[in-house]
Every structure is written in structure tokens, then in C-alpha cells.
Amino acid sequence: MTDSGSIQGELQGQVMAALWRVGSGTVEQVREELPPRYQGAYNTVQTVLNRLTTRGLLEREREGRGYVYRPKVTEAEYLSGSIRRTLAGASSGARQAALASIIGGLRPDELSELEELAREAREPRK
């Protein structure tokens, strides 16, 4: 609602995205992973990481004098729920068109991975 409120939300989103990219990291590692626009003071990043830990989105482990932060929610979990529900709510034709559009934008190596995943998904049904 306030400018500081929306900035807080943006920064939290950027910190989560950075942690998803690196898997886990210290305050400094996360800070380096942030886009230049969001690379604020060390304390700011630490505050956001601690806040996300209190909120139950991250877990932390002591390592030396600091902490290593790790996301409790994977990026795939974060994104897939909404995609699945959006597709579930669409008509059959729209669902196929949307999936075709997504698949059309994939690289050949991603397509191969997708084929492998589709094969694995089909196997238990046999």
C-alpha cells in the first residue's frame, strides 16, 4: 500500500528468486546474486532474510559466524500451483493452445527433458 510497503514486497520477491538460483547462501552471497537495483546494505538483506525465515519460507543453519539460508519452498512448487489451476480452469481447447505455446518456446534440450518427464509420468499408469 505505501511505497515502502511495495518496495518491501519487491525486495522479498527478489531475495527468494536469488535463493532459488543459488540453492542456498549466506547474506553476502544472496546480496551478490540480487540485481544491482536491489543490492542495498548488508543489514537490509539480512533483515529480509530473517523476516522470510520468521514467516516460514526459509530455514537457516549456523555456519561459522553467520547463517546459511535455504528456501523451504521450491521455485517449481511456487509456480506450478498457479499454472496448474489456471490450466484446470480453462477450456480444453484453450488449455491445449496454451501448452502448445509454452512448448513452442522451449529450447531443444528443454524439449528432450520434457519428453523424458512425460515418459516417466506415463510409466506408472501402464
Binding site: 500500500m1 514486497g9 520477491g13 516460514g56 519460507l57 523451504k72 519452498v73 521450491t74 509456480l79
Partner: peptide
């Protein structure tokens, strides 16, 4: 906490559900 990117805070029986999307987005 639900590991979902959508924005949701809801009362479900005696518990409150809050999505990861809400935890990331709200101040």
C-alpha cells in the same frame, strides 16, 4: 504455510492458511 505462489490468506476450520505468494508479497 502453503508453498504456492498465489496470494491467499484464509480461515479453514480452526487454522489460518497463508500462501508463500502472500508471505513474499505483503509487507
Amino acid at each position: 504455510v502453503l508453498g504456492d505462489g498465489e496470494l491467499l490468506i484464509a480461515a479453514a476450520g480452526p487454522r489460518v492458511l497463508v500462501s508463500a505468494g502472500a508471505l513474499v508479497t505483503l509487507d
